[in-house]
């Protein structure tokens, strides 16, 4: 019974790890930084509206560069 619960918990943890982090930990890190920035610029309309999308786009660009693979030769 305990083994079954432990297995289910491991599977649950594994699902969330794969879902949130998986092979793109930089995107999880980006989201953490964006949440922190959002609290820091609390109430600053223009700063928040410009800064948050730019930071998100910057991290997406880094993640895309990191994910590129060599294309097939012909």
């Amino acid at each position: 019974m305990n083994a079954a619960i432990a297995k289910a918990l491991r599977a649950f943890g594994h699902f969330w790890w794969d879902f949130l982090i998986g092979d793109t930990p930089e995107l999880a890190l980006a989201t953490g930084i964006i949440v922190a920035l959002a609290f820091l610029v609390d109430g600053e309309r223009v700063v928040g509206a410009i800064l948050l999308p730019l930071v998100a786009a910057g991290f997406l660009f880094l993640s895309v560069l990191r994910g590129r693979r060599r294309a097939p030769s012909d």
Partner: peptide, 18 residues
Amino acid sequence: LSSFGLFWVGEGAGVNWP
């Protein structure tokens, strides 16, 4: 999803979106 995500993070944290 990215648009909603950014918007809700800002809203929840107190950012006033123009």
